[in-house]
Amino acid sequence: MNYNDENLKNALSSEYVLGTLKGRARVRYQRLLLERSDVRQNVWHWEKHLNTLGESLEAQKPRAEVWQNIQQRLGFIEIQKKTSKPWPTFLLPGAALAATIFFAVILFWPKPEIVEVPTKQIAIVQNAKAEALWLIQIMDDKLHIRATDNVTLHADNDYELWMLAKDGRAPVSLGLLPKTGENNLDRPTLFDQIEIAALAVSLEPLGGSPNGQPTKVLFTTELMML
């Protein structure tokens, strides 16, 4: 598919925002959003206009518990013992079945890399020319990383990924980035316990930083959502 065709790009962006682009086509387009700033801007254009429709609805007041729950989830207030059911009981058998189907799909899917896994956040590491180098998808249990063809291949060096906390602590290593292709890194528990200011990529000797600190920081990027 030629995504440089403006008409095609517009058609896909508008149906992506509207929600009628679905399934594997939607996942493919989401991946393209990570890679191409022209596609992101096109999607933003449609979000900007179509979502004025949402603004036109009459406001409805949510229950007070919603704000309480948000504050609890963000750690602003202590978690109280839950009295309400988090999920309607009639959905529980369905949830078990959905889990079974999900794992069956994972097992038998011909190309596991296109299985639709919800991504909460992403980061794109770019070089000075704003070319994407690595696409980082933050999953619930791991970080999925894909290197693009723009990564400079050094035979004697590795690239290492770091998280930089807002609290000013020393950078925390997340592991080595792939120079080509894809890999997964563990999502450390700390990832959810601190506020992350940015991710950084450093150039290291083969095998990673010798002293637990970045040797030469090349790029930084912020986490963002789709």
Partner: peptide, 13 residues
């Protein structure tokens, strides 16, 4: 601001 008004951006989320 390329993403529209703050409210439109929040609605998209």
């Amino acid at each position: 601001e390329q993403r529209g008004s703050v409210l439109a951006w929040m609605i998209s989320i």
